[in-house]
Simulated scan of single mutants.
Amino acid sequence: MNRLRALAALGAAAAAFATLGATAQAALAELGPYVRGTYDYGQPKWAPAPLEPKGNPTTPAKVELGRRLFYDTRLSRNGTMSCASCHEQELAFTDGRTVSPGVTGQLTARNSMSLANAGYVPALTWSNPLLHTLEQQAMVPLVGQEPVELGLAGMDDEIRGRLAATPPYPALFRAAFPEADGQITLGTVARALAAFQRTIISMRSPYDRYRYEGDANAVSDAAIRGEALFFSERLECHHCHNGLHFADTVLHERNKLGEVAYHNTGLYNLDGQGAYPPESPGISEITGRPQDMGRFRAPSLRNVALTAPYMHDGSIATLDEVLDHYAAGGRTIASGPHAGVGSRNPLKSAFMSGFTLTPEERADLIAFLKSLTDESLLTDPRYADPWTAERSPPSP
């Protein structure tokens, strides 16, 4: 059955790609290798810059176009949703839901991931190792049909007409894509969205000021104690949540080869043999390998206090409950269709051995996780809705 699901998923991806039209397909097929571009991302001096596909260099014009498209409900079948509907700036570009509805009301299988620092990730989404660029990933919500999100499959001409009739899009497309004579296609839309998303960088948390900028007063004593716990061999957290972004899938100018990893944390064990719910079985859906059941990409823990609910399916509501899951070495679900003892999952990571925490240690660990919140990200005008000021009445 895993192999059948993998083939079905690949077939659905191929079918969705086929709906894009020749122009859009060609635009995405020519992305080329990752390179260090010339765009100034404004990251702190201690931080590396993200890489970008050679065929889609980041430019100010492209970023501004992508920001407008990101917040524009014209990029949905019925004009009711935008990319920002599931990626809200005030929630670190998540949406606070367990899973998200698309324009038809159909729900996604997985929780909406944060877009902060997505430009540093060489394998996108929770469990699709085939999606390597933000340009490719943008097509999933735009034209994907399983599930339907923005619902634009087969609407190439209509979307082109909508955008062409809306100032300032014609001028912005010409400025962003002079080599394509300013063509408005789903391909150039995806490239602009990707360029904007690469600029969403979050590295100005209290912990960053403490650890990388030498401000000893930036975090509390409790957070410092929590840091020591987090990086201890007793808790094992750092094995999957490490490095610049507290995640072990990363690519940037100092790590050009990149790293990609997927993990099973014993969240489910439906049959005693490691089965996960069939609607979201991890990368086994793509690879067809039984041993990949339940393996998902570890998300960044930056801004984790803002991105509840947690896990790939949003099935854990609070950070305290997340700690319960890891302390137990896997989650136990006592009854219902998902009943099972996750700590006995034979496919779970070797790092899921469990631990105990005193109340004081738990509070310290939570304090550390909260110190990863970058408040400036939530209001940074570079990432905000550019249409808001234009919709607002002028001041008297």
Rank of each mutant, 00 (worst) to 15 (best):
A6K: 02
A14Y: 09
F17Y: 11
T19Q: 07
L20M: 08
T23V: 14
A29I: 02
G42D: 03
K45P: 13
A47T: 05
A47D: 11
P48A: 14
L51E: 08
N56Y: 02
A61H: 09
G66D: 06
R67E: 01
L69S: 02
Y71E: 02
R77H: 11
G79L: 03
T80F: 00
A84R: 12
H87V: 02
H87W: 05
E90K: 14
G96D: 01
T98K: 15
L107Q: 05
T108L: 10
S112T: 05
Y120H: 06
V121A: 07
P122M: 05
A123I: 01
S127Y: 04
L131W: 06
T133W: 01
E135Q: 05
V143D: 07
G151Y: 06
D157T: 14
G161L: 00
G161M: 01
R162E: 07
P167W: 01
L172N: 02
A175G: 06
A175N: 12
E179D: 13
T188P: 07
T188V: 01
T188K: 09
T188S: 12
R198P: 05
T199Y: 08
S202H: 09
D215Q: 14
S220M: 09
A223Q: 04
A228G: 09
F230E: 03
E233Y: 10
L235F: 07
E236W: 09
E236M: 12
H238Y: 15
N242I: 11
E259S: 14
H263N: 09
N264P: 12
T265R: 12
Y268N: 11
N269C: 04
L270G: 10
A275I: 00
G288T: 01
P290T: 09
M293Y: 12
M293H: 09
F296I: 04
F296N: 01
R297Q: 15
P299I: 10
L301H: 01
A308E: 15
I316H: 08
I316N: 06
D320Y: 11
A327W: 00
G329Q: 02
I333N: 10
H338Q: 12
A339V: 00
G342H: 03
K348N: 06
K348M: 04
S353D: 11
P359W: 07
R362C: 08
L369Y: 02
S376P: 08
L377K: 03
T379H: 14
D380N: 15
P381R: 11
P381I: 06
R382W: 03
D385A: 00
